[in-house]
């Protein structure tokens, strides 16, 4: 009986379907290439997941609170450039802690800029971040006169190249390094999970995404919650940008721009409701991983990389289409159930 309930609970959630799609995709690639479940491929994928994964966590929180953030690539680029440039000018030779602290500070500050407009002026997040993304980009490219930085401080370089362990594919002999930056993803994930599920602040994010007026009446400080949430999102987005700079061994000011749409798509694929209020971090990571796998595994099954966007686009349309139809069906079913109960 309990099992039945659990199954029904599972099948009622869109994460379940995404998980099925995800497993099916992995199996398909494995069958076609026999290369998917090799240690080095898995490490490569996990390594590719670091930056989109952290971005997705930030976007997830914003969507749960009832908005959209399109500014995080600009925010991360600006922070990454500012910190790298400043340290290069200082001829900084120390470890990675200072850069990370600076990143968090600047990221938090820029996040506060978003949070001010969205939290305290109650303006729609999508529009504000559209504007602030322009401002950040303009500030980076105009005021800071950003150019590609071919070298980065030694501490950051070491951080980016260091590996937790090295995985080897016994057949091909190829090796892949698990980057230390993966720890950043894990830390952010654990922290975000704790904030969202174990603190009243996090429940406030869910509550205000469900019904902001009720949240206010219940005693949540909705304005402050949103403000602090954007500070946090700014900090982790900036951290993702820093990880990317370290992993790429160079600072390219514009190559993160334009990532926002795929990140949003991943989060929503993972079952996060775009109207806010519901979704899980597990689903969010699953949706993001799905997109990362599609983007990175085309070569394995012999599809030229130019087809990448076609597949990701089709995935977004199919995935959201399926879950939209699922929602419509569920609504109809629940209507029937209510009637049945009433008829009793």
């Amino acid at each position: 009986m309990d099992l039945k309930k659990t199954v029904r609970k599972l099948t009622g959630r869109s994460e379940f379907y995404i998980l099925l799609v995800f497993i099916a995709l992995c199996l398909l690639i494995e069958v076609r290439s026999h290369q998917f479940f090799t240690p080095n491929n898995i490490v490569d994928l996990l390594s590719a997941l670091v930056v989109p994964g952290i971005f997705a966590i930030g976007e997830f929180m914003v969507i749960v609170s009832g908005g959209f953030d399109v500014s995080f690539p600009a925010l991360a680029s600006l922070t990454g450039f500012a910190v790298t440039k400043l340290l290069l000018n200082m001829d900084y030779q120390g470890g990675v802690w200072l850069p990370i602290l600076m990143t968090l500070a600047i990221g938090g500050l820029l996040g506060a800029f978003n949070g001010l407009f969205i939290g305290y002026f109650e303006l729609p997040a999508m529009i504000v971040t559209l504007g602030s993304s322009s401002v950040f980009k303009g500030f980076m490219q105009g005021t800071l006169n950003s150019k590609q930085l071919a070298t980065i401080p030694v501490g950051m370089r070491n951080f980016g190249t260091s590996a937790l362990f090295v995985a080897q594919n016994k057949q091909s002999g190829l090796t892949s390094r698990m980057p230390t930056t993966f720890i950043a993803l894990v830390v952010v994930l654990v922290l975000a999970w704790f904030l969202l599920n174990r603190t009243m602040f996090g429940r406030g994010i869910y509550a205000s995404g469900g019904n902001a007026v009720s949240a206010h009446r219940a005693g949540f400080n909705v304005k402050r919650t949103r403000f602090l949430m954007f500070v946090f999102v700014g900090m982790i987005s900036a951290l993702a940008g820093m990880c990317r700079v370290c992993m790429m061994q160079q600072m390219h000011p514009t190559n993160m721009l334009g990532m926002e749409m795929n990140i949003i798509a991943g989060v929503v694929l993972g079952g996060t409701a775009i109207v806010g209020g519901s979704g899980t971090l597990f689903g969010c990571m699953l949706g993001t991983a799905l997109i990362v796998v599609v983007e990175n595994s085309m070569i394995l099954i012999g599809i030229p990389t130019v087809w990448k966007d076609v597949f990701v686009g089709a995935l977004i349309v199919l995935g959201t289409g399926l879950s939209a139809m699922q929602v419509t069906r569920a609504q109809k079913a629940s209507l029937r159930n209510v009637r049945k109960e009433a008829a009793k």
């Binding site: 429940r203 509550a207 009720s214 949240a215 219940a218």
Partner: peptide, 15 residues
């Protein structure tokens, strides 16, 4: 003034 996206328990206990 309830939260449809949260559980009965949370709705009852938040205040």
């Amino acid at each position: 003034s309830i939260f449809p996206n949260l559980t009965v328990m949370e709705n009852l206990a938040f205040n």
